[in-house]
Amino acid sequence: MPYKKPKIEKVIFTIGEVAKMMDVETTVIRYWENQFEALKPKKNKKGNRLFSKEDIEVVKLIHHLVKERGLTIKGAKQKLKDNPEGTSHDFEIVKKLQKIKQELMEIRDKMGNEA
């Protein structure tokens, strides 16, 4: 039986990697860290920020509120303060709907190529 290399899943990300995922500058993420209590990545001995998957979910939620929904920083902070569970739930629904939309578009494109 051949050796099967185990799949290694990354669990810690640098601020540069997170910024690239979100298509924002690292300064934006640093600013959000100062503005939102929920975003507190760990720091190594050098002071480099290390983001867990949970931290990245917080960044995605802040990005959604500020960049996609157009809320101000103050408005996003208030929304997270007033209803953190509801805001996270709403964000999860939006992500699922976006995934469904992408799948439907792929199906449409495949059907268009077959015709």
Rank of each mutant, 00 (worst) to 15 (best):
P2N: 05
P2K: 02
Y3K: 13
Y3E: 14
Y3I: 15
K4D: 12
K4P: 00
K4E: 14
K5C: 11
P6N: 15
K7D: 14
T14V: 10
T14A: 04
I15L: 01
V18L: 03
A19C: 10
K20C: 09
M21H: 05
M21P: 02
M22K: 03
M22R: 06
E25W: 04
E25R: 07
T26S: 04
T27I: 08
V28N: 01
R30P: 02
W32S: 00
E33L: 06
N34H: 09
F36D: 04
E37D: 11
E37Y: 10
A38Y: 08
A38S: 12
L39R: 10
K40M: 02
K43W: 02
N44V: 13
N44I: 13
K45M: 00
G47P: 01
N48V: 02
N48W: 11
N48Q: 10
R49E: 02
R49Q: 03
L50K: 07
S52H: 08
S52I: 13
S52P: 03
K53R: 12
E54Y: 14
E54W: 11
E57L: 13
V59W: 00
K60T: 08
I62T: 00
H63Y: 07
H63A: 07
L65E: 03
V66N: 04
E68W: 01
G70P: 01
G70R: 10
G70D: 09
T72A: 08
T72S: 13
I73N: 01
I73R: 02
A76H: 09
A76T: 05
A76I: 09
K77L: 10
K77C: 09
L80K: 10
L80E: 06
D82V: 04
N83T: 06
P84D: 14
G86C: 11
G86M: 10
G86V: 05
G86L: 11
T87I: 14
T87S: 12
H89N: 15
F91H: 15
E92D: 14
I93G: 06
I93S: 06
V94P: 08
K95Y: 09
K96F: 12
L97R: 14
K101R: 13
K101H: 05
K101Q: 12
Q102N: 05
E103T: 14
E103H: 08
I107F: 03
G112W: 00
G112V: 05
